[in-house]
């Protein structure tokens, strides 16, 4: 038997959040945590959580699993279980809407701030803006982010200043466009990150790297942005490093 402790909170009926324990027979197969939640939902339909693709692509089911952020759909219960217990909480630092569902407005506001789209003022070519294979290689390890918010919500700097510190997920995306050879707004992008909070609040504790379900390295991207802000490093000097590629 396993105990699954789930953070419960319904603002319409609960004054305070509480933990509810569900005891169930340990599944014979090493199923994913999301499947376990689906089994529990059949017992108690009031449990709320986000889910969609069930294969680690949509980033909907980010949650705090035994104290570490991760995606329920790609976390096997054998990996999550500790002393026959699994503790499930919502992503830390964001307001809870209900149970494991958090309000991601602040997270998306920071994503919006970095202008996550290609900006190029030159005349568009007839077909498409081309890149050399070497230029394309610079984007590896950056574009794969699925915006699950596991990294940003594991970052204490983002907990304390979610309105000012951009956070690892959005900074990874900021660097994704800074490093893109087709984007011509590098100076403006860096200007927008030059205040004491947006980037400099990252103290490199690397929680983001530790929890990223896609094995990305936001800390390296942040380091590159800092390096560009602090020096006169030009875009063409960006190299593909082992940390990102």
């Amino acid at each position: 038997m396993i105990d699954v402790n789930i953070y419960r909170y319904n603002p319409e009926t609960d004054k305070f959040p509480y933990t509810q324990t569900y005891t169930l027979k340990k599944p014979e197969k090493d199923i994913m945590l999301l499947e376990l939640l689906n089994i529990l939902k059949e017992q108690d339909s009031s449990i709320s959580y986000r889910r969609s693709c069930r294969e680690g692509v949509c980033g909907s089911d980010g949650m705090n699993i035994n104290g570490k952020n991760g995606l329920a759909c790609i976390t096997p219960i054998s990996q999550a279980i500790k002393n026959n217990k699994i503790e499930l909480r919502p992503l830390p630092g964001l307001p809870v809407i209900r149970d494991l569902v958090v309000d991601m407005t602040e997270f998306y506001a920071q994503y919006d701030k970095i202008k996550p789209f290609l900006q190029n003022e030159t005349e568009p070519p007839a077909q498409e803006r081309l890149q050399s294979p070497a230029e394309r290689d610079k984007l590896d390890g950056l574009y794969e982010c699925i915006l699950c918010a596991c990294c940003s919500t594991s970052c204490p700097s983002f907990w304390w200043n979610p309105d000012k510190f951009v956070g690892p997920a959005a900074l990874l995306q900021a660097y994704r466009f800074i490093a893109d050879s087709r984007d011509t707004k590098t100076a403006e992008r860096l200007e927008g990150l030059s205040d004491p909070f947006s980037v400099y609040r990252c103290h490199g504790i690397m929680n983001c790297v530790n929890v990223c379900p896609k094995d990305l390295n936001p800390n390296h991207a942040i380091g590159e942005i800092k390096s560009m802000l602090l020096s006169d490093k030009k875009k063409e000097n960006i190299i593909v490093s082992d940390g990102v590629s």
Binding site: D195, P196, F197, Y200, L230
Partner: peptide, 10 residues
Amino acid sequence: MKLGKLIWYL
């Protein structure tokens, strides 16, 4: 010099 950069260098 930008404030963020100034504090970092300081």
